[in-house]
Nucleic acid binder design. Structure first.
Lengths: 113, 113
DNA sequence: AAAGATACATAAGACTTCGATGTATTTGCA
DNA sequence: TGCAAATACATCGAAGTCTTATGTATCTTT
């Protein structure tokens, strides 16, 4: 199952920030693969969505970049900034609260893993 | 706290369908108030978002309508259709799954209420 | 040698929601 | 009694986000 695209809307930034705050540095393609892997293919981040998001995060000062070459192929690494760490916590907290609210609203039975 | 609007994106239809599947019939304004009340003001559905959504649900055959007059003021009631009930279950199930995935991905600590 | 994976990026279009605006009635309170 | 606030519908332009398509180029595997 792949989630309908509306669901993921609004969560992309949060996902990317969270990943970067737990991985010191990652490059774009790596992020798409990591999300795919961690979510068992349920969330597929397209490159058309990811790169604009990364650029936006950079221009907001939430991430920093450094470019590296593997052979002749470019690789652009992204790292979380101090402001990005703060923002990540805010976004994750807000999302957690939202999940609680929705669980109640939709009367979802939570399974204790 | 009111959730940033991106978060609600993609969940509006699900919320409306769920409410209608547990309330026999509701009218637009009532839905906005009910959501506000149930979520302790955290989710505010704007009328500019709700009415187009209700009209869309109707044209998809997921809800049926009946108009009533309270004095001179019109009230348009919406009720879930059989197809709507099926759709509601699908959407709620999908959201529940999404919730689990995101909880894992964002490493959210769940509180057992 | 070719296909598929890796790796970046942009851009037009679709879709959803917001915020503003509009009309009209009813209720509450000062 | 008069006026503000709440009730109740609705539309529309603008904004924001993501999809799909497209483009370039390198590396790996068969």
């Amino acid at each position: 199952m792949i989630y309908s695209s509306e669901l993921i809307k609004g969560t992309l930034k949060t996902i990317v920030l969270k990943l970067l705050s737990t991985h010191t540095k990652m490059y774009g393609y790596e992020i798409t693969q990591k999300v795919k892997e961690l979510t068992l293919d349920k969330i597929q981040i397209t490159e058309g969505a990811l790169y604009p998001t990364l650029h936006a995060l950079e221009s907001e000062g939430l991430v920093t970049t450094e470019t590296e070459y593997i052979g002749k192929r470019m690789r652009k690494y992204y790292s979380i900034s101090p402001a990005g760490t703060v923002k990540t916590n805010e976004k994750v907290t807000e999302f957690a609260d939202f999940l609680n609210t929705m669980t109640f609203l939709l009367d979802i039975k939570t399974t204790t893993a």
